[in-house]
Structures are given as structure tokens and as C-alpha cells.
Design a protein around this nucleic acid. Structure first.
Length: 325
DNA sequence: AAGACGAAAGTGGTTGA
DNA sequence: TCAACAACTTTCGTCTT
């Protein structure tokens, strides 16, 4: 729940072009009047210092995204908005002592009745608390899924993972948002849908750190098994953003395959590796992209692309036209 | 003028005592 | 919990096209 007062990084600011014009004129943190808007998150940020001047407005519901009828149906079952304020605070427990209101001992069949009652009372309450949490979580999931453009099967698995976490009590004490984000990340990893933790955390109030912690918790406690991240899973998406030819994509994947066989990929950022492979492949096939463009598409820095690419060229003995070293 | 390059210092996360 | 450490980022000066 970092919320108010967190900062944007310099790099993120540069990506945001939309100038904000509105009632707020200066940054309360540094006084600058250069305010910009992040359309993706609906926040207003100071271009000078990165201070978040105004946070994202709360979801305005599904209207910013077209959902399939099927999804709408699922969503509609979520029901009316539930206020987080309406928690368990108003419910009563049945006292565990076998006494009545005036303190007299209760016994016999009457006592059994009460025991049964007590059982149901707590059970239905637990049930509904899980349900309630889950419907909040579902809303959060839809929000994340829309922003991250997640396929349906990922959503389903994310929800399943979340449910398991919830049922084993892992959500208590953590925000629904961060646990759900972690569940989404786990589902992505598991199904090899390439989304980085950063991307997911970007659309979550809870910081990246929180999400990462929850994620590790999930892997440890909820037995979510996760295949190792593979750089070639990132290739199609990066290549898509760069509008590269299929031939180039194929070559990039081949380069990564060789790299993996030689054990060059361990411990390296898969997005960086993919970017480097694409950069090389693009040169070899002739539809050249600059390091800068590739880096931006892969969401890493030029330097990382450069380092990885140098390394790949050297260790795999790749020859590049008109280039030495 | 833009792109590529590499050095150097800084950051956030992991690991092991 | 602290320090060492590896990968990555930021920034910047220089070289190349």
C-alpha cells in the first residue's frame, strides 16, 4: 500500500508524452509546472521530479474495454459493488461456553443444537468471507487482465492460483491487489506467456517489491510450479513491436537456442537476451533496427542489449557484415 | 546528427556468514 | 542482519557512419 507520494523513474517519464492541462498547476513536491499525464495509469506526474501529483482514479468499471459476452456474463455474477467497509465487523460469534445468557449451564439435546448452530454460523461466515474476497479479487483480475492484454486461460489460472492462496490463508495481511498481481505473474510464468514482473507491477498500486514477495510466497506455499523463464518466449512480442519479418524472428530464436545450449543464458535477464538476439538477427537478415529501438521494445536499456549482443557474438562466433571484434 | 561504444558509478535483489 | 556480489541502469564522453 505505498500509494501516495511514490515516484516515477526517469525512464518512465520520458515515455510519457501527454502533457497535462488541468486545474492543478504546480508540483507540490518541487514546484515545477511541467506536469504530464500517464494515459496507461491515469495518473498525473511531475515531469521534473517524478512525483505523483494525482493518483489513478478508481476503476470506472468495464467501459474502457470491450469484453466478450461470455466474460460479461461471468462478471455480472460478481454482483453489486461490495464496500470493503462492510466486513465481518457486524457479525456476532456464538459463545463457546455452554452457558446461556444468564450464565446457567445448558445441557443435553439443547447443547447439541447449539453446537450445530455454532458450526454453521462460522462456516457460512467463512464461506462468505472467501466469496467476498474472491469477488473483489475478480474485479482486480479483470482490471489487470485488460491492461496487460492477457489471454483467457491465463486469467483462469491466475484466479485458480489466487483461490488456492486465499483458501490457505495466504492473503490475510496482504492486499488483494498485490496477491492477485503475484498470481497473475505466476500464471504467466507457468503458461509461458511472457510478461515481466515489472509490467505487472506497473499496473498495481502495491510496489514491485510487494508483488515479488507475494509471488515468492505463492511459489513456496501454494505449490505453484513454474518453468524457468525462457528468452525465446519474449521474442515474438518484441519482434511484433518492431514489426520484424518472420525470417528474423526465426533466426533470433535459433540464436537463443544455441546460446542456451552453451549455457550463456543462466542468470541473465531473458528480455535482454531476447533483445540482443533480435538485434543480431535483424542485422543479419537486413531489416535493421537500432539498439535504442530494440531496447525500448524489450524494456531494457541499450547498454544491456549491447552487453548481451557483444557476448553472444563473441561466444557463438557470429559474424556480422562489415563489423569487427 | 544519429547511432554505436565502453567506462564508471549507482541501484535493487540474492546469497551466504 | 550485514556484507559481498552479479546483473542491470544511468550517465556521459568518444568514436563511427
Amino acid at each position: 500500500m505505498s500509494g501516495e507520494g511514490y515516484m516515477y523513474r526517469k525512464r518512465d517519464i520520458r515515455e510519457l508524452l501527454e502533457i497535462y492541462e488541468g486545474e492543478i498547476l504546480t508540483c507540490p513536491s518541487c514546484g515545477s509546472d511541467k506536469l504530464i499525464r500517464d494515459p496507461a495509469r491515469g495518473e498525473i506526474i511531475c515531469a521534473e521530479c517524478g512525483y505523483v501529483v494525482r493518483e489513478r482514479e478508481i476503476d470506472r468499471g468495464p467501459e474502457w474495454r470491450a469484453f466478450t459476452p461470455e466474460e460479461r456474463e461471468r462478471r455480472s455474477r460478481v454482483g453489486a459493488p461490495i464496500s470493503p467497509l462492510m466486513g465481518d465487523t457486524l457479525t456476532t460469534d456464538i459463545d463457546w461456553r455452554s452457558k446461556d445468557a444468564s450464565g446457567r449451564q445448558i445441557d443435553g439435546a439443547r447443547r447439541l443444537d447449539i453446537m450445530r448452530l455454532r458450526k454453521w454460523h462460522t462456516r457460512t461466515r467463512v464461506q462468505s468471507s472467501i466469496e467476498r474476497n474472491l469477488s473483489q479479487a475478480r474485479i482486480e483480475l479483470e482490471r489487470l487482465a485488460a491492461q496487460l492484454d492477457l489471454p483467457k486461460h491465463v486469467k483462469e489460472q491466475a484466479l485458480e492460483i489466487y483461490r488456492r492462496a486465499l483458501e490457505s490463508g495466504l492473503v490475510r495481511g496482504r492486499s488483494i491487489e498485490s496477491v492477485m498481481a503475484a498470481a497473475v505473474y505466476a500464471a504467466c510464468r507457468n503458461l509461458r506467456v511472457p510478461r515481466t514482473l515489472d509490467e505487472i507491477a506497473k499496473f498495481t498500486r502495491a510496489g514491485r517489491k510487494d508483488v515479488a514477495r507475494c509471488y515468492r510466497l505463492l511459489v513456496r506455499e501454494a505449490r505453484v510450479k513454474v518453468p524457468l523463464p525462457d528468452a525465446s518466449d519474449f521474442v515474438p512480442r518484441i519482434a511484433g513491436a518492431l514489426k520484424l519479418r518472420g525470417e528474423t524472428v526465426k533466426l533470433a530464436k535459433e540464436i537463443l537456442k544455441r546460446a542456451r545450449q552453451m549455457g550463456l543464458t543462466a542468470g541473465k535477464d531473458p528480455a535482454g537476451l531476447a533483445a540482443a538476439a533480435i538485434y543480431i538477427a535483424a542485422i543479419k537478415t537486413g531489416d535493421i533496427r537500432t539498439q535504442k529501438d530494440v531496447a525500448r521494445a524489450a524494456q531494457v536499456t541499450e547498454v544491456t542489449v549491447r552487453n548481451r549482443y557483444k557476448e553472444l557474438v563473441k561466444k557463438l562466433n557470429i559474424e556480422l557484415p562489415l563489423n569487427k571484434r
